[in-house]
Amino acid sequence: MTKSSSKFADLRLRLISALVLAGVALVVFLFGGLWSAVLLAIGTGAMVWEWREMVVGQGQGLRPPGILMIAVAAIAVIVSDQFNPITGMAVLVVGTLISAAWERERLRFTVTGALYIGVAMICIEALRADSRFGFLAVLWLVLVVVAVDVGGYFGGRVFGGPKLWQRVSPKKTWSGLIGSVGCAQFVGFIFALVVGLSYPAEVALMSALVALVAVGGDLVESAAKRFFGVKDSSRLMPGHGGILDRLDGLMAAAILVAVVSFVRGQSIFLW
């Protein structure tokens, strides 16, 4: 195997598993409502489990306090769909604190992680719940985050160069970051043109901001894995590690977009 081909040795497996996951998510989010809420709830529970496995050690996350914390986070997403995001977050906070009172080990980490994951997934469900632009908003968000991953992957492996933050993520480079932002802007611009929006430049600009936040979310999870001494959050996704490894950037980006939408009082797609 040549040096060039070895750089992309994991590309095929990564691509296949990513396409399968993306295909399932696309169909479910197209239906929206309870369908998307259930999918997000499953993902939420899986990621809280992964997080607890990282924090408290293998098998420890399935003790009664862990099971309760996982269930609460998943149920909170369903509640946010059936009622509203505020109610869902209230269930998340209260339920997480109750489960935390049941245990003592590394509490500040387990609670913080569960709340962050739950809030992020509730934000995605809240974006999808918009009757006019919900599906487009989530589709755009996912496509931009995928573009961040693709642009960073090829930018870093083709051009290499100085590391972005070697102590936390040895493989990430400044060229990869530039590739991520550039690819995200391009995808956002083309997406706006394809769906008929009259402000593609603004969508491209917002896509660049989302890209930076997504990379930040990725770095935060990388720092957490390094701190806890694990390579991947789990092995649930062949070629990708765990669900948390794949959705870390999406969750950070979703929180940003949800906050911007809330502050503006309207969908991110209205200008």
Rank of each mutant, 00 (worst) to 15 (best):
A71G: 14
G161I: 11
V138R: 08
E50I: 10
R167E: 14
I16T: 13
G216K: 01
I255Q: 01
I122D: 01
S17M: 12
L30G: 07
L68K: 00
E105W: 04
V181A: 11
R106M: 08
L193W: 10
Y199R: 12
L270N: 06
W51F: 14
S234D: 13
A184M: 08
S99F: 03
P170T: 09
G216D: 03
G134Q: 09
L244D: 09
R106N: 14
G57Q: 09
E125K: 13
G43A: 14
G59Y: 10
G151C: 14
A18K: 08
S234F: 03
F31R: 13
V48H: 05
I117N: 08
S5Y: 10
L39F: 15
Q60W: 05
I190E: 00
S4M: 11
G156Y: 06
G61L: 02
F159N: 06
W165F: 14
I124W: 03
G59V: 08
P64M: 12
G151I: 12
M89S: 13
L34T: 14
G23L: 12
L30Y: 15
L244V: 07
M251C: 14
V20F: 15
N84A: 13
V215A: 03
D130P: 02
R167Q: 15
A252G: 06
A204N: 06
V138D: 02
S6P: 00
L97T: 05
A120N: 02
S180T: 07
A147E: 03
S222Y: 11
L30Q: 12
T110H: 04
R63C: 05
I67Q: 05
V48A: 04
Q185I: 04
F262T: 14
R106D: 13
E50M: 08
M121T: 11
V195G: 01
S198T: 13
L97I: 11
L250P: 00
F159R: 07
F83G: 01
L127G: 00
V91A: 13
G179S: 09
P65L: 01
V48T: 11
L141S: 00
F191N: 05
I190D: 00
